[in-house]
């Protein structure tokens, strides 16, 4: 029985995904269809239009193997060996430096904003 539930829930998730893709194509929205599907599902859950129990185990199953789904794409790097033997190797330290800045900015701002808001609460 569990397998049937999971399969039906996977179909529901695919339904949200396809709806997102259709809306994207129809309204020419500059967002990936999958993100539109994500937002639709999140909204449906928040508004209690769609109950969590009807999608939870399917999502859990699908996400358990998340990293498998991008392996075929990452294998595509075999076609870009030449890039990394030349100037392209610089892209690695560039990505690292930019990652540091991203972490510093996001971590610092959220820590600062959280402290500021607790202080405000304490004063009032």
């Amino acid at each position: 029985m569990k397998i049937i539930y999971i399969l039906l829930q996977l179909l529901a998730i695919t339904g949200f995904y396809l709806l997102g893709e259709e809306l994207q194509a129809f309204f020419n929205i500059p967002l990936p269809g999958s993100i539109i599907g994500f937002l639709l599902l999140f909204a449906a859950l928040m508004l209690k239009i769609y109950p969590l129990e009807w999608i939870d185990s399917g999502a859990h199953f699908l996400l358990a193997f998340l990293s498998l789904y991008f392996v075929p794409a990452t294998v595509g790097v075999v076609e870009y060996g030449e890039l990394f033997s030349g100037k392209g190797i610089l892209l690695i330290p560039i990505v690292m430096a930019s990652t540091f800045l991203t972490m510093a900015a996001s971590g610092w701002v959220s820590q600062y904003a959280a402290k500021a808001s607790t202080e405000r609460k304490e004063r009032s």
Binding site: L10, I13, F38, L39, L41, L45, L63, L66
Partner: peptide, 15 residues
């Protein structure tokens, strides 16, 4: 296998 990426992104709404 790659076709599962789209639905997997949608499923991130649950966590």
């Amino acid at each position: 296998i790659g076709t599962l990426l789209g639905p997997a992104v949608v499923a991130l709404a649950i966590p």
